[in-house]
């Protein structure tokens, strides 16, 4: 009996091992990489955090949000504005950006959580458009369509500058690993199991005694928090924040990343993010029809691996055990 007590499904452990292996490999190989692939790896690490944060809602709770760029973008704008106009350092920017992104998610959550299915999709889309509108129209704050350029890389006071690609890559990789670990614990926690339960049957969860609204709301806010975290990294990485960062396309792309890798698996979402970043930036070198290829990949995944690439590999054999 005791052997079975501490027993999360063994597939999770394998994913954790694979994830650590991938992170370590990336860390070890990084110094040997030329600047541009390193830049893309950095971008992939950051976008992976965004995709994973969405997966908490999409894959674990079953809430397909189409407005996730909002929290990402609000955090990125906060960093951009504070870092360029107030010369604020990393700590201040981070705290302010996370507070604002989380507060926005807390507000939007109140409006969105009562809706389900397509209505949830529509309402998150609409709220995302509100934030895009703000970014575009509140010119005195956001510089509107011009965006905010020249966001300086943060100084850590450690003697090496994050302005160089390699140190910033390690910075982003470490931050992404931390976020991944935190989200990993979350989805495996009692709370995380509750999210999966809601995804499967809300009425049963209510009957068992769960305040389903509260559970979903907390997931929504936490997801916004991590999307904000990705936004902070993005502002520093790109040095530029504009309305395109909060537009619908960004939300849709994030949704596709999470869906591509396998909703309900954080590692899958990260894999989806890495795949799309590299697909976008490498395939496009070889052919102008790269959008067609990306579209074909999406359709292929939907047809043959609706649970995503990782989901297809981890599927339980029928009648297992």
């Amino acid at each position: 009996m005791s052997s079975g007590l501490a027993a999360p499904a063994p597939t999770l452990d394998r994913k954790v091992v694979a994830g650590f292996a991938a992170l370590t490999l990336a860390g070890v190989l990084a110094p040997a990489l030329p600047a541009y692939p390193l830049t893309l790896l950095t971008q992939a690490a950051i976008v992976a955090v965004l995709a994973m944060s969405l997966d908490i809602l999409l894959g674990y709770t079953g809430l397909p949000s189409l407005g996730h760029a909002a929290y990402f973008g609000i955090a990125a704008y906060t960093v951009a504005i504070l870092a360029t106009e107030r010369q604020m350092g990393l700590a201040g920017c981070l705290v302010a950006a996370l507070l604002l992104a989380t507060a926005t998610a807390a507000l939007f959550g109140v409006l969105a959580i009562r809706a389900t299915g397509t209505y949830f999709l529509m309402i998150t889309l609409a709220l995302g458009m509100v934030v895009w509108g703000l970014a575009f129209r509140w010119v005195s704050m956001t510089k509107g369509d011009n965006g905010i350029a020249g966001v300086p890389r943060p100084g850590l006071g450690l003697g090496w500058s994050l302005a160089e690609p390699l140190p910033f890559f390690y910075f982003a990789l470490l931050a992404a690993a931390l976020a991944w670990a935190a989200m990993g614990v979350l989805v495996r926690s009692p709370f995380g199991l509750g999210l999966k339960g809601i995804r499967e049957s809300e009425s049963r969860m209510r009957a068992l005694g769960y305040n389903v609204w509260l559970h979903k709301y907390l997931a929504f806010v936490i997801s916004g928090f991590f999307a904000g975290f990705a936004g902070v990294l993005w502002a520093y990485y790109n040095g530029f924040v504009g309305p395109a960062d909060v537009q619908l396309v960004t939300s849709v792309e994030t949704l596709l990343m999470a869906a591509l890798g396998g909703p309900g698996t954080l590692a899958g979402s990260a894999l989806g993010a890495v795949a799309i970043v590299f697909l976008k930036n490498f395939v496009s070198v070889y052919t102008k029809r790269w959008l067609l290829i990306l579209g074909a990949v999406y359709i292929g995944v939907i047809l043959w691996a609706p649970r995503g690439v990782l989901g297809a590999f981890t599927r339980e054999p029928r009648g297992a055990r």
Binding site: A26, L29, Y36, F282
Partner: peptide
């Protein structure tokens, strides 16, 4: 899973190195 992940990553890096 580990094998698949490692292979995927390696493939990505191959492309990266080849192009550079």
């Amino acid at each position: 899973m580990k094998v698949i992940l490692v292979r995927t990553l390696a493939a990505g890096l191959n492309v990266a190195l080849a192009t550079t």
